[in-house]
């Protein structure tokens, strides 16, 4: 294992500390619960939006905390759900009379932890609702999941809900936005290599130099099949077809198109994929209103990418357009 680590066990709190120091004034860090929150939340009459899951998917989840995005988030160990008390403290840290919406990606560990945390928060009189995100078309039921997995489409749910909450929407409205995004977003990914959790020190699965895993999960869960690697256009076509046919997206639809890197693929390669995906979308009669190329939901240093389509309407376009700020930035 060659990584920038000090103590592998301290990997998560150490990167969280870096995020805090890089964002003075914007964020607060509670090390005991591996929790980061906006300094200006809770805010009166504003719904708070929170999330928390295993680490290793950065910039999800704590690096998605900021104005117009998440109000707070907590991190579990790499690829493991945060403990219930951290989830509970995350809700409590940004609780308002307007309420808290918890966005949970569909993994059993996360679901149980947040379900219990919500129950504890409700018992304290906190108004809270939870929503389960499951955008991955690859497989039904998986290593850690009953039903479909939640992956890169999570970004769009956060972005739209964050914008709605910032605009002063009430809890039911923000929840309805989450439902709408999740109902219209689909993703599938492909892996070229495995990844190494720092505390484990070895790859989480074996894959040959000439192989790819089509439909990979972000914790290395198996997808649809293992195959010989193909050229970039052929891979993009397979991802695009699987995603586009699932909703299905129809000619005339206005969409957001995302190529998300899984952590170990250079941005140039992501744009190679984007070029083909954009052309395929246009050929299918889709109008690409917004595009997203970069890292939104990763799997440590896994080489690979996922393709996401989100069908838009006027309201969602407005929410995607709305200003937002997160811990990761290039300007």
């Amino acid at each position: 294992m060659k990584k920038f680590v000090n103590e592998p066990a301290n990997f998560v709190p150490e990167f969280m500390k870096g995020v805090l120091l890089a964002n003075p004034g914007l964020l607060e860090f509670v090390p005991e619960f591996q929790l980061i929150k906006r300094t200006d939340r809770p805010a009166e009459n504003k719904v708070s939006v929170v999330q928390g899951s295993g680490s290793g998917h950065e910039p999800a989840h704590i690096m998605a905390v900021g104005p117009g995005m998440l109000s707070a988030a907590c991190q579990g160990p790499v690829f493991a759900a945060p403990p219930v008390d951290a989830c509970y403290e995350t809700i409590k840290s940004v609780a308002t009379d307007a309420g808290v919406l918890v966005l949970v990606n569909n993994y059993q560990g996360d679901r149980m932890a947040w379900d219990m945390a919500c129950e504890m928060a409700e018992a304290e009189g906190i108004k809270v609702k939870q929503f389960i995100i499951n955008d991955d078309v690859s497989v039904e039921d998986s290593l850690y999941t009953v039903g479909r997995r939640g992956v890169a489409g999570n970004f769009f749910v956060i972005k739209a809900c964050g914008a709605a909450a910032e605009a002063g929407a009430d809890l039911d409205t923000v929840l309805a936005v989450a439902e709408k995004v999740n109902a219209n977003v689909r993703t599938m990914g492909v892996a070229l290599t495995s990844c190494i959790p720092p505390a484990k020190g070895t790859a989480i699965f074996e894959i040959g130099d000439d192989e790819m895993e089509v439909g990979i999960g972000i914790h290395g869960e198996p997808g649809r099949r293992r195959d010989k690697i193909k050229n970039a256009d052929a891979i993009t076509d397979e991802l695009f077809d699987a995603v586009a046919q699932d909703l299905p997206y129809k000619s005339g639809d206005r969409v957001a198109l995302m190529i998300n890197g899984l952590g170990g693929t250079p941005i140039s390669e992501l744009y190679v994929l984007y070029a083909r995906a954009h052309e395929r979308a246009e050929q299918a009669g889709l109008t690409v209103v917004r595009n997203y190329v970069g890292e939104y939901c990763t799997s440590l240093e896994m080489a690979g990418a996922s393709l996401t389509l989100l069908k838009l309407d006027g309201q969602l376009e407005e929410y995607l357009d709305a200003p937002a700020e997160v811990a990761v930035r290039i300007f």
């Binding site: 493991a80 759900a81 403990p83 219930v84 008390d85 059993q108 560990g109 932890a113």
Partner: peptide, 9 residues
């Protein structure tokens, strides 16, 4: 909730 890891918590 605090000390039992994984789904057992």
């Amino acid at each position: 909730s605090k000390h039992v890891g994984g789904s057992s918590g």
